[in-house]
Amino acid sequence: MNINLTLIGQSIAFIFFVWFCLKFIWPPVFNALEQRRKTIADGLAAGEEGVKKLEDAKQRYDELVNEGKEKVAEIISQGQKRHDEIVEEAKENAKEEAERIIASAHAEIEQEKRQARDALREKVAILVITGAEQILQREVDQKTHQEVLDKVSASL
């Protein structure tokens, strides 16, 4: 229980140990702790951000799907409309064509009718003249009555 040089020896040893600890033990361990704390904090923040991004992506996905659905519906309705238009147009065209054909047929018929009538008229005129000639052969001189005959033929 004597106080002696041991006191000073202890103090020197103590100062050395504290110095060593201050220089070589505390900083690396403390830095590692700080760094790990930071890494964990960053990781947690990144995780949170990831969740948020996922939510955003989901929302964006929903938006895109909805947009796509709307577009598809629009395209389908447009197609339907176009289809209707085409059918309508075709009907119209067909109608016009049919009318045109009918009209030309009518015109042809009319013309043929007229031709037939003309031909018939001439033949009737000839027949009448022939009949009249035969009847009037004796009384009528063809040459003298030519004028009359022409008149009759023209009025027919």
């Binding site: 004597n2 002696n4 040089l5 041991t6 202890q10 103590f14 060593f20």
Partner: peptide
């Protein structure tokens, strides 16, 4: 009787050994 100019070898030995063990 040694007074102040003496040293406890056992105290020094064990404390320094333990201190070295620590560091």
């Amino acid at each position: 009787q040694m007074g102040f100019w003496a040293i406890h070898l056992d105290t020094m030995f064990f404390s320094i050994t333990l201190g070295l063990l620590f560091i």
